[in-house]
Amino acid sequence: MSEGEILEKLRQSIFNYDAEAAAKAANEAVEAKIDFRKALEVLTEALRSLGEKFSQGEIYLPHLVMAADAMERATKVLQAIIPKGEKIGRGKIVIGTIQGDIHDIGKNIVSAILRSAGFEVYDLGKDVSIERFIEKAQEVGADIIASSALMSVTMPQQKVLEDELKRLGLKGKFKTIVGGGPVTQEWADEIGANGFGRTALDAVKIVEKLLSQGG
């Protein structure tokens, strides 16, 4: 099978939300000694186009989740041909719904969109304590901590997270982004968060911007 055919199989595995097919095509890419960068680019582009379709309402959250799962399966296989020390992910993000809040669908969408954009996402679920956010971020060497709050009564915990990061001297180490129903840019500014996403799709742009700023 030619390189083009294998790369097309990889692409189609994402469009078909097929994790098994993605792993199989990735194996074929490894055996054919295809440049891993080409394989990753094909996968990322396919996911990006699915992200666009999601934003247009043509596909739904489960499609994004399945596509991101397929991407992860393929990436795991491709690890075999990625030189040690080569950074392939675009950045690491720890994400969760803030303590006291059990709403997670918005957070799940952001998680799926970030995964589909090639970021390494550690999703802690819902009702996540401040301590857990920070512990996980330190454990994985995260770049960004993202918190979601869907109720005005759970939003204050986002400030508690900011204050705790400052208290521990970690504010410079981890950037923070906030989102969720009642959350606004004004709130993000007030508490000192680095970024705010009004919609789930804003998340990728904001993360890219924050990571490009360095520091």
Binding site: Q99, G100, D101, M151, V153, T154, P156, Q157
Partner: peptide
């Protein structure tokens, strides 16, 4: 409930 009571923001639970 209002988001604050006794001048304090409360946490769910």
């Amino acid at each position: 409930p209002s988001p604050t009571v006794e001048g304090r923001a409360w946490r769910a639970g």
